[in-house]
Every structure is written in structure tokens, then in C-alpha cells.
Amino acid sequence: MEFTITTPLTEYDLEQLHIGDSVFINGVIYTARDAAHKRLVVLIEEDKDLPFDLQGQIIYYVGPAPAKPGQVIGSAGPTTSGRMDVYSPALMDKGLKGMIGKGNRSQAVIEAMKSYKCVYFGATGGVGALLARAIKKVRIIAYEDLGPEAIYQLWVKNFPVIVVNDIYGNDLYKEGVKKYQKIGML
């Protein structure tokens, strides 16, 4: 199935999404890699305010290349999501409803996605020049000292992703591999 969704995400948005669905995201999304996640989780542990409201939001795991003069943003493809696994459930507890990255998530994160109702979207790794075209406006909102790892607010139009983990506990990486694996020679 193909869907177009707009942030912030509603429960209805999440319920209709299943693994393998092609989704085009519109609206505002936020960037964060491991360094920013670590700081966010420290704030949560200290019961302090976060630099943005996570309710219904999507975090994109990306550290963009610098923008050339005239560009909105440099190449901006996903980074490996597994490094965020230790931090993600704490953010879901604060209302996070979507994550965009590449690569598989831990069982703990998959379980948390089920109980908190959060979807993991895969963006194709290594196509940062193409994905940057779907980003229309950029603003740094926190941790500028982290350079490419700062938290940016991105305004996106038809940002293309695939549902990898849905709220029903399914995993496209596992199902996809099962479908195409052959018993080899070894």
C-alpha cells in the first residue's frame, strides 16, 4: 500500500501502516543522532524540559553534509539506527511516534514500538542527494556545538520511506529476507 501522511502523527495514521508500505511524509520532522539522543535522555532522567515537544513527532537519524551556497541542506540520508536503540524507548515514553533510519532495531525497541505505538520507517541508505530534495526548509533548534549531529527541524515534502517495523510487532527486514533466502551451498 501507498500512504501520504502529515506530522504530527495520529493514532489512526499509525494503525493503518503495515510493513512494506510505501509512505510519503509531509510536515515537520526532527533530526537526532546518538550524541543528541544521549543529551535528550539525560534531560528526561533529570525531569527537565526537552528542546522540542515529542508528542506525535518523527525523529530522523541523520547527520547531513553542509549545505552548499544556494542549497537548503547538503546530502541527508539515514544513519544506522541500532546506535539509537538504547535511547529510543525513553523518547517513545515522551510521545515519539515515528523514527526514520536504516538497519535493524533491537528486540527491546520492537517491543517498545508495540506498547507505545510507534513506527520505524526505513529510508534508503546512501541516497542522501536524492533525499535532500524532499527537504524544503531547515532550522537548527538545539546542540549547535555538535555540528552535523545537532538537532534540526526539517520541513519535508513527500519524503519517501518504507515501513520496516509497524505497531503490530512485524519486521520487514526479517520477513523480506525469509522471502528471498535460498539454502546455499555451505
Binding site: 535493524n104 526505513g122 520487514l172 523480506g176 529476507v177 528471498y180 533466502q181 539454502i183 551451498m185
Partner: peptide
């Protein structure tokens, strides 16, 4: 040939 029997595929989505 053996690696391509693993089924991981482009972007790991199966293939």
C-alpha cells in the same frame, strides 16, 4: 553466489 543466497537484498528489505 553464496552471499546472494542470503536474501538480504538492496537496503536489506529482502532480495
Amino acid at each position: 553466489k553464496e552471499i546472494n543466497c542470503l536474501g538480504i537484498g538492496p537496503a536489506g528489505l529482502g532480495g
